[in-house]
Write a protein that binds this DNA or RNA. Structure first.
Lengths: 143, 143
DNA sequence: TCCTTGTTGATAATTATTATTAACTTGATT
DNA sequence: AATCAAGTTAATAATAATTATCAACAAGGA
């Protein structure tokens, strides 16, 4: 059998956070969501079932989650931050037409050709953003 | 002898832009500046010698330059856009302590492991952002 | 010099985000 | 179950970065 899905309450407790309905709902949303949600998307999605939740709470919550490593915050270009439940190191394809974001992985760290002034730079992490046209948008323009 | 420096007026004309004092000053600033300037930095730098120039003009101008390929707009995390006269494909080291930005190059395009849903994605460009601690900041903390 | 068209600068508007803080929960303790 | 300290929430204001608007102005060709 495959591992049973970890529920949001469990995750919150493991992270040392108090379990509040707001946190549960937001974390659950991110666990269910296929993609990379913005604060606005989260807010609008949970609003129908949780009308009292404020935007500040969404910000507080996701920023908090990100700092604790529960989610990954990603920024693409100058757009709003997006939050991803996939915390494994990964990279992104960005469609320049429609803004679609697709995850991808890299087998090994590429060779970075560092200049002299970067000698001794201690690499912690790296992220590759690949820009181009996604299959759907290519289909549209190619006909 | 090495190639003579192309001047800003020439560049503007080649780009098909009208030559205005504002554009000259901003382009010249970017050509002289060692680094990646924000709009605010450009504005504050040119202000003493060109007090009538407005922030909107700086935005208009650099965005325009970027669209025409005269400069490269780069965004790091959620910070403000930066504008770089170096339009050759290159990548960046970002110091998580002080925010320093160092250019680097890559010999060849790394192998991207694209998932099935990205089949047919047409890659136009890619940018690698490497996060870590720069030599200067390492020196400070290591003593 | 004239005139068309692109550009500028001032201002307002917008978007994303952080700060502030009083009222309210959570969860540990009794 | 009641108490309470400490963390959390929601509303609001504040800030930062950027875009929109548009009348006055300047560039460069006729």
């Amino acid at each position: 059998m495959h591992g049973h899905a970890i529920n949001s309450v469990q995750l919150l407790k493991e992270a040392g956070l108090r379990v509040t309905p707001q946190r549960e709902v937001i974390l659950q949303f991110l666990m269910d969501y296929q993609g990379h949600a913005t604060v606005d998307e989260i807010y609008r999605s949970v609003h129908p079932t949780f009308p009292s939740m404020s935007v500040s709470t969404v910000y507080n919550t996701v920023k908090n989650f990100a700092q604790l490593g529960l989610v990954k915050e990603i920024t693409v270009g100058d757009g709003p931050s997006r939050f991803d439940i996939n915390v494994k190191p990964h990279h992104h394809l960005v469609c320049v037409k429609c803004g679609a974001l697709i995850d991808f992985y890299m087998e090994e760290q590429p060779k970075f050709q560092l200049p002299p002034e970067a000698t001794g730079f201690e690499i912690e992490d790296y992220h590759v953003e690949v820009k181009g046209i996604c299959p759907a948008c290519r289909g549209k323009s190619a006909g």
